[in-house]
């Protein structure tokens, strides 16, 4: 099980890569959302905002009403934020669960893909 600090560190890297990616900025244009991450093995929640084409810092705990809820293990979140894990694979096998509209879910996956993978 990863620690809160590890998740926050991994997220910080993800955030920098995402916010520095001009293509990704285009993809999240006009897409202001509140995203909750729930690390089921830790029983811990996190909140991320996407506002004005930028990802916010990761806040420990749930804040605001979410547009999307992502539920997975703390290890999976860490690996995903570092870009070592393809979240779609975990999603298609049922290990990562999502709640939210299909369009919102697509954007989350787009962020994870475009931030790390060559298209």
């Amino acid at each position: 099980m990863a620690s809160i600090e590890e998740i926050c560190e991994a997220f910080a890297d993800w955030r920098t890569r995402s916010n520095d990616n001009p293509r990704l900025s285009k993809m999240v244009k006009g897409w202001d959302r509140v995203i909750h991450f729930t690390a089921s093995d830790m029983g811990q929640g996190f909140t991320m905002l996407v506002k004005d084409q930028l990802l916010s810092e990761l806040v420990v705990g749930y804040h605001d009403q979410p547009d999307v809820i992502v539920t997975g293990s703390s290890e999976d979140f860490c690996d995903m934020f570092w870009g070592d894990l393809n979240p779609s694979e975990k999603y298609m096998s049922g290990e990562i669960k999502l709640a939210g509209s299909q369009q919102d879910v697509m954007r989350i996956d787009a962020i994870s893909m475009v931030a790390f993978l060559d298209q």
Binding site: E5, L58, V60
Partner: peptide
Amino acid sequence: MTAPAAPS
């Protein structure tokens, strides 16, 4: 990265 404490 800051990880401020949050309300429950």
